[in-house]
Design a protein around this nucleic acid. Structure first.
Length: 826
RNA sequence: GCUGGAGUGGCGGAAUUGGUAUACGCGCUGGUCUCAAAAACCAGUGUCCUCACGGGCGCGAGGGUUCAAAUCCCUCCUCCAGCACCA
């Protein structure tokens, strides 16, 4: 017998990886009578090498894919790369190469590692977003959005790095400086491209309810992100110091019950009216410099931990429409322009922010709701705002009402009076997709003579990334001689071209549909895509809970509205795997606490790595790396190897269930139990307990000795079952034994998943546990399905039980069939 | 602060239609084999009392419901994650 050692493993694993590849074992059928199943992992960024997080992600997906194939599904299980993005460009600058060369090399390395892990991808469907065939259709989708008004350009305040000449994301600004250049970042108002995802806010929120097999956590995060709130928009007359009406202003509130307590109204610094209303006034320059100062600070800075609030009175006033009171208008840094209307009615008595602000600037506080259990709430004594529900006071006809009732009554009344309107507001903002960077999909737009954006004709797609560019000084596209102009083919006229590229989240919002049909002449074929989609099982990190998963849902709804697809949610079942930790900390290169998957594969093989990563923790939990645990997984596979080698003997396996008796019957029952447990666990991704069930079965095999040919047949069955159940988890070892020992001709990857029979799980004798007053006092074996009377008699005959029952009155006898009895005594 | 999730041996974790708490694995202890070590194999391993038989106590804390609670209810504590001046 060959021993299962490092060298042997390398030979076996390489052998089967080559076999799978050459025989296209995992190729998905284009059309099939079999039911389809689409398993997908979030495609990775080609960072260089696989880390344990990838290993965990792909191992889970691979087990699901292999399991479904064995169950008879036509499985689609593809892989690709999210290969555009800033790191490639930075690496290219650093290493004096092109982003394309750098990226292609990284991808090649990672594909080799994926193959070494034995992942059963259909490599004929490989894709990557920097291929022209892919980004061409990215551009096409963008144009469809543009044509329908969903992609638009608007001025927006962004982080500008003056050294690198590019816009930076908020995450790339550290302590007010660019992360790479170290230059102090400026705030600039620049025209940017946005996608009107807010048009879909309502359906993105509503359809979360359809996603029964998504983690509650992810759905909650998306709900919070979309942030729907019901409230009232109130219209105020704006008057000057003399009381003359000069304009109107709208505010949004979720607390219409507090309108009688308004003491001032605040505008965000970005609100255009701040400047307009102070032009030519004495405070014009004071206000202008305040606005400049506030807007200069980054959003993170402004809304950070500090609860310090700053503001200035504008010198104009508004009239509260509910009681005719004139209150001052302020500008302050605690109001956000892009939520609601950018203007807020301030009620210091009943909102903590307004309270803090009012105290700081000596503004009055007036109570309009009192606590239910206090007759009075005195504004002078308040140290914090009263934000709970209560009883209305100082609110005219609404006095005495409960504040929740008043909320409805007041908004209704304001609506009938014409100055209020019930409104729904979302926190979700439009998606800024333009980047002043090279390594991304060029936005397919040119500007006509009037400067209006026009789509590049679809015949001219793709808008290719030029190769003859210079890196290191801002966006190479903006300085490229060949790229900057679009030439109309028929007229020969030159137009200025859009030189921004797209956020890579745009690329990743539909790649899962592209896998279903990689034809170069279309993004995908509706019929084929409708066959495969939605993705039945999607697996990825929780860090994408909002961005990627929300954008993908949006794309799906958009493409459905275009009539291209028939489904409206892309991912039926979602699994978010937990992080891999070392000594309680997330593995990261910068911390230097990484375990290299290659090193583990080198020493123990891919199968051991796969077993460990699945066995160490349930997939959604954090996983603590443990070298000893890896040793345990290794030992388990070694036992499978040597035990099956040792025990499997050619025998006549034709055997009727009825002929199986004695210890063989127990062996056979253990086999059926294992099939049941593993199958059920796989459905719920409980791979850790599935493996433990396999260990239990293996222990049973170890204990069982075959006395005759019938026993041997039973033993052989058990051995084959171990291989079949373990095949999705440790495929190389199982293929080898399946062929070599069990003498099977076809690959185990195509073998049928075993079935169990309920009848075989039944026992003739069952263990009955005896409790006295709920405490465990004894146990005995009885015939299955024995009646209450029999069990009572047997329980009372137990010596230990007697001690606790003797001399006492039996008040009650509790009986759980085939499980336990409980004798209740006084 | 809001939202979601979780607290079980020395460790990773099982067990939730209420019914033998700690499956499976790691570690540890003892043993077999060996000149020795490693590997492998066998036995033991919640805790306290007891030579032992056996018993008390044990699933974050406290209470409750029940014949019976890790599981259901109430109050509280701790940890993790996400969001956070959203009006």
């Amino acid at each position: 017998m060959t021993t299962y050692n490092s060298n042997e493993i390398k030979r076996i694993e390489a052998k089967w990886q080559m076999f799978w590849d050459e025989n296209k074992v995992f190729k998905a059928e284009a059309r099939s009578d079999r039911p389809k199943y689409y398993v997908l992992e979030m495609y990775p960024y080609p960072s260089g090498k696989l880390h344990m997080g990838h290993v965990r992600n792909y191992t889970i997906g691979d087990v699901m894919a292999r399991y479904r194939r064995m169950q008879g599904f036509n499985v689609l299980y593809p892989m690709g790369f999210d290969s555009f993005g800033l790191p490639a460009e930075n690496a290219a600058i650093k290493n004096k190469t092109s982003p394309r060369v750098w990226t292609d090399n990284r991808m090649q390395d990672m594909v080799a590692q994926m193959k070494a892990m034995g992942l059963s991808y259909d490599w004929s469907r490989f894709l990557y977003s920097h291929s022209e065939e892919y980004y061409r259709w990215n551009q096409w989708i963008f144009i469809q959005m543009f044509k329908r008004g969903l992609a638009y350009k608007k001025k927006s305040l962004v982080n500008w790095d003056p050294a690198d000449q590019t816009v930076l994301a908020n995450e790339q600004v550290i302590d007010g400086k660019g992360w790479r250049s170290g230059a102090v970042v400026e705030k600039r108002e620049i025209e940017q491209w946005f996608i009107r995802i807010t048009d879909y806010a309502e359906s993105l929120l509503r359809d979360l309810d359809k996603l029964e097999n998504w983690p509650e956590r992810v759905k909650t995060m998306q709900r919070n992100w979309i942030g729907k709130s019901y409230g009232t928009t109130i219209k105020f007359d704006v008057v000057d110091a003399q009381g003359k009406k000069i304009d109107e202003l709208k505010t949004f509130t979720t607390r219409p019950d507090t309108v009688f307590g308004i003491e001032y109204v605040v505008l965000a610094a970005e609100h255009p009216k701040c400047k307009e209303w102070t032009i030519g006034k004495a405070n014009e320059s004071e206000i202008a410099s305040f606005i400049k100062e506030v807007t200069k600070r980054s959003l993170i800075d402004r809304l950070g931990e500090s609860s310090d609030k700053n503001g200035k009175p504008l010198g104009v006033y508004v009239i509260n429409p509910v009681n005719g009171r004139r209150v001052p208008l302020w500008v302050a840094d605690y109001v956000i322009m892009d939520y609601g209307t950018g203007a807020v009615m301030a009620v210091p008595a009943h909102d903590q922010r307004d309270f803090t602000f009012a105290k700081k600037y000596g503004l009055p506080v007036s109570v309009v709701i009192r606590p239910v259990d206090h007759a009075i709430l005195n504004a002078a004594d308040m140290t914090a705002a009263f934000v709970d529900a209560g009883i209305m006071v100082n609110s005219q006809q609404f006095d005495g009402m409960s504040s929740p009732d008043a909320m409805a009554a007041i908004s209704q009344w304001m609506e009938s009076q014409g100055f209020g309107e019930r409104t729904v507001t979302f926190r979700l903002k439009d998606w800024l997709i333009s980047r002043q960077r090279y390594w991304g999909t060029p936005i397919p737009i040119f500007y006509d003579d009037d400067g209006n954006p026009q789509p590049i004709p679809e015949d001219d797609l793709p808008v290719r990334l030029p190769e003859d560019v210079e890196f290191g000084r801002g966006n190479p596209l903006a300085t490229s001689g060949s790229f900057r102009y679009y030439v109309d083919k028929t007229t020969g006229k030159k137009y200025r071209r859009e030189t921004d590229t797209m956020d890579t989240f745009f690329d990743s919002s539909w790649y899962y549909m592209r896998y279903t049909d990689l034809n170069k002449d279309r993004p995908f074929h509706p019929d084929i895509t409708n066959y495969w989609m939605p993705v039945d099982q999607y697996i990825g990190g929780i860090e994408h809970a909002i961005l990627h998963l929300l954008y993908s849902r949006f794309f799906t709804k958009f493409l459905r509205d275009l009539g291209l697809v028939k489904f409206d949610e892309p991912f039926k079942r979602l699994l978010t795997q937990g992080m891999v930790l070392l000594n309680g900390e997330v593995m990261s290169k910068s911390k230097g606490n990484v375990v290299d998957p290659d090193a583990i594969i080198e020493k123990f093989g891919a199968d051991t790595l796969r077993v460990f990563i699945l066995f160490a923790a349930p997939p959604e939990d954090q996983l603590e790396w443990d070298d000893n645990g890896v040793g345990g997984s290794w030992k388990f596979l070694t036992r499978v190897w040597s035990l099956i080698y040792d025990r499997y003997q050619p025998a006549d396996d034709r055997l009727k269930d009825a002929e199986i008796t004695g210890p063989a019957r127990d062996m056979e029952r253990a086999r059926h139990e294992a099939i049941k447990n593993v199958s059920e666990d796989f459905e719920l991704y409980k791979f850790n307990t599935a493996i433990s069930s396999l260990m239990v079965l293996l222990n049973q095999i170890d204990k069982f000795t075959a006395q005759n040919p019938a026993d041997q047949a039973v033993l052989n069955r058990a051995c084959r079952t171990v291989l079949l159940l373990l095949a999705p988890i440790a495929p190389h070892l199982c293929e080898e034994l399946w062929q070599k020992i069990a003498g099977q001709e076809d690959t185990i990857s195509r073998a049928a998943w075993p079935k169990f029979e309920e009848a075989m799980l039944k026992r003739d004798q069952v263990k009955i546990v005896v409790q006295v007053n709920g405490k465990l006092r004894g146990q005995f074996t009885a015939a299955a399905d024995a009646g209450e009377a029999t069990l009572k008699q047997m329980a009372l005959a137990d010596e230990r039980v007697k001690v606790f029952v003797e001399g006492k009155e039996i008040k009650k006898f509790v009986f759980v069939p085939n499980k336990l009895v409980n004798i209740v005594v006084s």
